[in-house]
Amino acid sequence: MEYSPEVERYFREPVNLGSAESLAPHQIQGEAGSVERGTWIIIQARVEAGQLEAVRFLAYGCPHTIAACCRTTEKLAGAPVGELLNFAPDWLTDELTIPVEKAGKLLILQDALRECFDGWQTGAREHNGNYVDR
């Protein structure tokens, strides 16, 4: 398998690596995939005033998956929380030169981001619509 220089760089020095308590206590989290499926991703984010103040990830996956998590979390930092829903894998396949057979792994990343957004929405509803900072 060939890897682009960007994938190699992110793999060697991953950015925005999370941990169990990295963004606690104001943390929302989304999870998708499993070891059995070959890809398992957790996205963690801290939201302040409707903005993604910090975004982290943990992953079990191939080098393309790890690079995709790095690049996505970089891009989402500082964006409105709604951007978690707008993630489309296409730009990543071009930017990181991810082969088409790895498209399914990016969909798992998309699922993790969506679950993260759902977590934020649930939290917001629980706080009578006024919830912005978790």
Binding site: M1, Y3, F11, V35, G38, T39, Y60, G61, C62, P63, I66
Partner: peptide, 11 residues
């Protein structure tokens, strides 16, 4: 355990 094969080979 806990390591994806392709990433291990790349590492």
């Amino acid at each position: 355990g806990g390591v994806e094969g392709e990433s291990l080979i790349f590492g």
